[in-house]
């Protein structure tokens, strides 16, 4: 699977498991699992796998990840439709409040024109929607040379940068 990571296109070994019964056997390989499945099989997973990845939807309370946050190499944030902006808040909370340093991956309806916002919120990996040109999507990071606000990208807000006379 090709994804954008740190603004470059890379090949990536992780595959996303959207749906799986909590009682199903643990899938082999590098898999991004639904949070509920991961939590239901926590002990076994921690024993059997070296690296861990989960995905959450907009209604998941970010706080429910905290107890295991150190375990995750990837937290994938779902955008079921790109207009659903809840995962922007998840991203900022994970980065800024809970100091999560692993990968934050955008999945779902991930499109060029939202990448700028996503990146500023701390998302560093993007699984662009299948039918879109991933190379063209890279243009989405360009747009703006400066920003008014601080966010997870450590930008200093303009109001703190202005030179006062």
């Amino acid at each position: 699977m090709r994804v954008i990571k740190n603004k470059s296109i890379i090949d990536d070994s992780w595959s996303l498991i959207r749906d799986i019964e909590n009682t199903a056997p643990i899938p082999n390989g590098d898999v991004i699992l639904p949070l509920a499945f991961w939590q239901a099989n926590r002990d076994e997973l921690l024993k059997s796998k070296k690296e861990h990845a989960v995905w959450i939807d907009g209604s998941t309370e970010t706080e429910s990840l905290l107890i295991d946050i150190e375990s995750f190499a990837i937290i994938a944030l779902d955008f079921p439709v790109f207009k659903d902006g809840r995962s922007y808040s998840h991203a900022r909370l994970l980065r800024e409040r809970y100091k999560y340093e692993g990968e934050l991956r955008a999945i779902g309806d991930v499109l060029q024109d939202q990448l700028f916002f996503m990146e500023r919120c701390g998302i560093d990996c993007f699984q662009i929607r299948d039918d879109k040109d991933i190379k063209q999507a890279l243009e989405g990071f360009k747009g703006f040379s400066t920003s008014y606000q601080a966010a997870a990208d450590d930008a200093i807000p303009i109001f703190k940068r202005r030179k006062f006379k």
Binding site: G85, S89, R92, F116, F117, C121, Y148, Q149
Partner: peptide, 10 residues
């Protein structure tokens, strides 16, 4: 502050 706010544009 609100112009192109990265978290609150959707």
């Amino acid at each position: 502050w609100s112009t192109f706010h990265p978290e609150f544009s959707f």
